[in-house]
Simulated scan of single mutants.
Amino acid sequence: MNKWIIDSHIHLDLYSMEEQAIILQDMEKHHVKALISVSQHLASSKTNLALSQQDKRIKAAFGFHPEQAPLTENELADLLLFMKKHQAEMIAVGEVGLPYYLRKEDAAIPIEPYIELLEQFIQQAAALNKPIILHAVYEDAPIVCALLEKHSITKEHFHWFKGSQETRKRMAANGYFISITPDILYEREIQDIVKQYPLSQMMVETDGPWPFAGPFSKAITHPQMIHRTIAEIAFIKKMEAEEVYDILYKNTEQFYFN
């Protein structure tokens, strides 16, 4: 179907230069209007800024991925200053959140420093009037919801969300957005979330270069995969694919560009 899409969450800076070139060259052919490229840390933010300056279809988000050792005070100060300096070129604060998988590997890692760090990013998003892109799954999601509620953030995007039905209801009631990855084609958990969550608060993403299984096994993660994601969403929602395309595109456009 010749309908336009937006990849609402990709780590473009983590691809090789050759892979980046292929993705950018393919965007028109696969009707990809824009890429929201999220960052891992300050160096990643600088790379994404440079990519966005080279190609206006790349929209850079600046942040600190939580699945790593926390920032020092000086490192945090440097990143927040960078965000403020380049706020006009920053589409959102992200990716930020809590280290669920890191703590699964080592339960001794304290969560408190990450909560304090996340609150700083939430406050920065509020101060700069920017959306925030969140890495918060399972039991971490309610903690993040409470922080967002505390600071009255108005544009929240939980990427690749996974969590309880109770948390989903809370997020939907608060107007939070989630984004769906290509694993919807083979993961029952994601299919159930799509079935229950409002389409009006949904976007689509790749989280590339993260690899996928099933029909995407051994393939480089490419935004064109989103077309199959949308077809599956339409099937689950029992809707016409064309209507689902239009709603998801409008959701993402209004969330990030209005």
Rank of each mutant, 00 (worst) to 15 (best):
D183P: 05
P70T: 06
S44V: 02
P211G: 14
F64L: 10
C145D: 06
S16K: 12
K84A: 10
T47C: 12
Y249H: 11
Y197A: 03
S39D: 09
K218F: 15
A126M: 14
F62Q: 03
F82G: 01
M225Y: 06
H11W: 03
Y186F: 15
L102F: 11
Q53S: 07
K59E: 06
M202W: 04
L117S: 11
L49K: 01
I143M: 10
E75Q: 15
E105Y: 08
K56F: 05
R168L: 14
P110Q: 10
A88D: 15
Q68F: 06
A141W: 01
V137D: 06
K250S: 13
P215N: 12
A21F: 08
D106Y: 07
A50C: 10
E95A: 14
Q254E: 15
F235K: 13
D192F: 07
Q40F: 11
K56A: 08
L118D: 00
Y245F: 14
E242D: 15
K85P: 04
N74D: 13
A21W: 10
D246I: 11
M203C: 06
Q68Y: 05
K237W: 07
I247Q: 04
K130H: 12
F177M: 11
M202C: 10
K195H: 12
D140R: 04
A231W: 07
Y256T: 03
E243H: 15
P182E: 04
E119W: 10
V38L: 13
A61T: 03
E112A: 10
Y186K: 10
A107T: 13
A60M: 07
I23S: 00
Q196N: 08
E187D: 14
G97V: 04
V93R: 01
H151F: 13
K46I: 09
L199P: 02
H65I: 09
D246L: 12
I143F: 09
L81F: 07
F158R: 01
R170D: 12
P70L: 09
A50M: 13
D13I: 02
P142Y: 11
D7K: 11
I178N: 00
E205L: 07
D78G: 08
L81I: 07
G97T: 05
F161C: 02
H31W: 10
I133K: 01
G163Q: 10
E89L: 12
F64V: 05
E75I: 11
E242C: 10
A141K: 00
L102I: 06
D183F: 04
E67M: 06
E105V: 13
S217G: 09
H65Q: 14
E189H: 08
I58R: 00
I233Q: 00
M171P: 02
S16D: 10
L24N: 05
E187A: 15
Y138S: 08
L128N: 04
A241L: 13
S39N: 13
H159N: 08
N258M: 15
Y138M: 13
Q123C: 12
F177D: 00
E19T: 05
M202E: 03
L79M: 10
Q224L: 11
P66Q: 04
L14V: 01
E67S: 06
A107Q: 11
F158G: 00
P99E: 04
S37A: 15
A172R: 07
D246H: 12
I233K: 00
V38T: 05
G63D: 04
K84C: 05
A92R: 01
S179K: 02
P182G: 09
I190P: 00
F62T: 04
H135L: 10
